[in-house]
Simulated scan of single mutants.
Amino acid sequence: MAATKLIALHHIKTKSVAECLKRCIDYVRDSRKTEDEKYVSTYGCDPNTILGEFLLSRRTYEDNVRKPHKNDVIAYQIRQAFKPGEITPEQANEIGYELAMRFTKGKHAFIVTTHTDKHHIHNHVIFNSVSIDGKSRFRNFYFSGLALGRLSDMLCLENDLSVIRSRYEERMNTKNEKRSRHHISDSSLSFLVDIEKKMQEGKGKGYENWARKFNLKQRAKVLLFLEEHGIASYEELVKKTDAMETEIDALNEKIKARNERMAKNKELQNAIITYSRTAEVYTDYRKSGYSKRYLAEHETEIRAHQDARKIFNRVSGGKIPKLKELRAEYGELIAANRPDFQQYVQMRKEKKDYLVARKNLELLLTEKEAEEREKVKAKPNRSSRSEASL
C-alpha cells in the first residue's frame, strides 16, 4: 500500500535557482534519513553532480527555447509512503525508481531517496522540470496526481503489495453493505471468485449468478489471451513466462553494467577536475620539499589532489583520461540505457499480463479437475448397480 503526492517546487524570489534546488536535494539526501545515503539512486545524472546537471539542462532550455516566467517551477517532488512492515528499503527504492521512470517517461533526470527514519518507509523523488536534452519542460497536466497514484498502485500490485481503497468505495460499502462490490485484493493475480466460499458466508442467489457470470468472463479473457499470443497449452505458457524472466534479468544486468560504468566515468570526471584545480598548489608543495608548514596551510587542496591521483590508479590504471572523451562516453551510455530501460519496463508489464493469465489458467484447470472428480464420484459403479437390483 503506497500513498503518493506530487509537489511542484517553485523558485523563491529571495534565493537563486541553485540555492532552491540545493535546499530540496540536501533534505532528501540527509544521511540520517537514508542511512548514510545507502538508499539513493539516480537517473540521467550523478549523485555528486546532480545540482550542476539540473542547472545545465535548465540553462540549455533558457538559451534555446525561452526564458523562465514568473513563479517558475524548477523541479517536482514525488512523495511515496508505504505501509509499515510491508516492504524493505531496497525494494522501496527500486519501486520509487520505476515510478519516476514511468511517470517522466525517461525524459527527465531524477534522484530517488528512501527514508527509514520514521515508522513507515517512504520515498522522496526530485525530478528536473526540464528534460535531459534541455528541449522541453514537464507538463503538469490536470489530474496528474491521480495518474501518479494509479501508476503507484500498478507497481504495488506488480510487487504483491496492497493498495489503498478510495474514500468513495469506503462510503459505498458503509451505505449499502448488502451490495456486492469487487475490490482489488492484496494479491494482484487472483481474479476468479470463489463462489462456494461466499455462499457459505451467507451471500444470496443473486451473488451466485453474478459470480458465475464473472468466472465465465475470466475464462473468456484467459482463452482470448492465449489465442492472441499463439499459446496452445499450459506447458507452453509456463515456458514463455520463464523465458521472459530470463530475458528481463539479462536486460537488467546490461542496464546495471552501464550504470556502473557511468558511476566510474563520473568519478573520473570529478577526479580530473579536482586534479587540475589543485595541480598548482601541489606543485608548490613539492617545490617546498614537502614542507609541513605548507601542508598545514593547504591541506585541503593537497589531500584532494592526492585522492584524485588514487582514483586514477584504481579506476584507470594510473592513466589520466581526457575529460572530453569521458563526457562523450557518458552521453553514449545514457543514450544506450534509455531504450533498454524502456524495453525493460515494457517487458515487466508484459510479464505481469502473462503471469495473470498463467495464474487464472491454473485456477481454471484446478476447477476442471475438481468437477471431473465430482462426476466420477456421482457415476454409479458395478457394485452399486448390483445392490440396487437386489
Results as ranks from 00 to 15, higher is better:
Ser131Leu: 09
Tyr61His: 09
Lys375Leu: 04
Asp249Ile: 08
Ser389Trp: 11
Gln342Arg: 15
Asn64Lys: 11
Tyr282Ala: 05
His69Gln: 06
Tyr330Gly: 03
Lys287Ile: 09
Arg66Gly: 00
His115Phe: 10
Lys217Glu: 13
Ile132Thr: 10
Lys5Thr: 14
Glu325Phe: 04
Glu228Thr: 13
Ser162Tyr: 12
Ser383Asn: 15
Gln269Asp: 02
Gly52Met: 01
Asn252Ala: 15
Val193Phe: 14
Lys264Val: 03
Asp30Gln: 11
Arg79Glu: 12
Val112Arg: 08
Pro321Trp: 03
Leu363Lys: 07
Arg179Ala: 12
Glu196Asn: 13
His11Thr: 02
Ser233His: 02
Ala336Val: 02
Ala296Lys: 05
Leu365Glu: 02
Ser136Cys: 05
Ile95Phe: 11
Tyr234Val: 02
Thr14Trp: 00
Ala296Phe: 08
Glu86Gln: 07
Ser16Arg: 01
Thr116Ser: 04
Lys266His: 13
His119Pro: 00
Ser57Cys: 10
Ala279Leu: 14
Leu224Gly: 11
Ser144Lys: 10
Gln200Ser: 04
Ile126Ala: 13
Asn123Leu: 15
Phe312Ile: 02
Ile121Tyr: 08
Asn48Ile: 10
Lys368Ile: 01
Ala336Met: 08
Arg277Gln: 04
Tyr43Pro: 07
Asn140His: 12
Ile74Cys: 00
Val315Thr: 13
Arg212Ile: 11
Glu329Thr: 09
Lys254Gly: 01
Gly230Asn: 13
Glu177Met: 08
Arg373Ile: 06
Leu251Asp: 08
Ala370Met: 06
